[in-house]
């Protein structure tokens, strides 16, 4: 382990100190070292968006981030979206609107949408589509996901 380094960052409000290989990605650290398997991998090359997490509130591809790039940062994964047993309005809306089929892209879609709505509480359909355009989904044709984000936006805005 001589080439390992200590990384420090917050994950879902909890401060973590992890001994990692400096060339391991945040995706690997989350899934393999911290056991947070809700973050998915689809390509490990930054092509599919499935591994999206929030870093200081902004959507980032965890498969392209090395530990030194997230040192001291606040990371939110899908496990950090609900408040205890209470789902985030986006999660509620995804369940209701049928935005979840196989569910593999769902964590990345939810986190990307969360960042979108925090910046713009009532985005247009086009703005939603643009925000989600880096996250691929093969099941839904994006239609139900867009509807779910609209539904959540309406509810969160009132």
């Amino acid at each position: 382990m001589s080439d390992s380094v200590i990384a420090n960052f917050d994950v879902n409000g909890r401060s973590r100190e992890v001994l990692v290989k400096p060339y391991h990605t945040l995706l690997e650290i989350l899934r393999e070292d911290l056991g947070l398997t809700g973050t998915k991998h689809g390509c490990e090359l930054g092509e599919c968006g499935a591994c999206t997490v929030l870093v200081d509130g902004l959507p980032q591809l965890s498969c392209l981030l090395l530990p030194h790039q997230v040192e001291g940062k606040e990371i939110t994964t899908i496990e950090g979206l609900a408040e205890g047993d209470e789902l985030h309005p986006l999660q509620e809306a995804f369940v209701e609107a049928g935005a979840v089929q196989c569910g593999y892209c769902t964590p990345s879609m939810l986190l990307t949408a969360k960042a979108l709505l925090e910046g713009d509480p009532s985005p247009s359909r086009q703005e939603i589509a643009e925000a989600l355009s880096g996250n691929l989904c093969r099941c839904t044709g994006y239609e139900a996901i867009t509807r779910a984000v609209e539904l959540a936006a309406t509810r969160m805005d009132t």
Binding site: L81, L87, V95, E96, G98, V100, G103
Partner: peptide, 12 residues
């Protein structure tokens, strides 16, 4: 709601 949707939106 689909019976497996809640687990899928929470990453579990």
């Amino acid at each position: 709601a689909k019976v497996d949707a809640r687990a899928k939106v929470t990453g579990s």
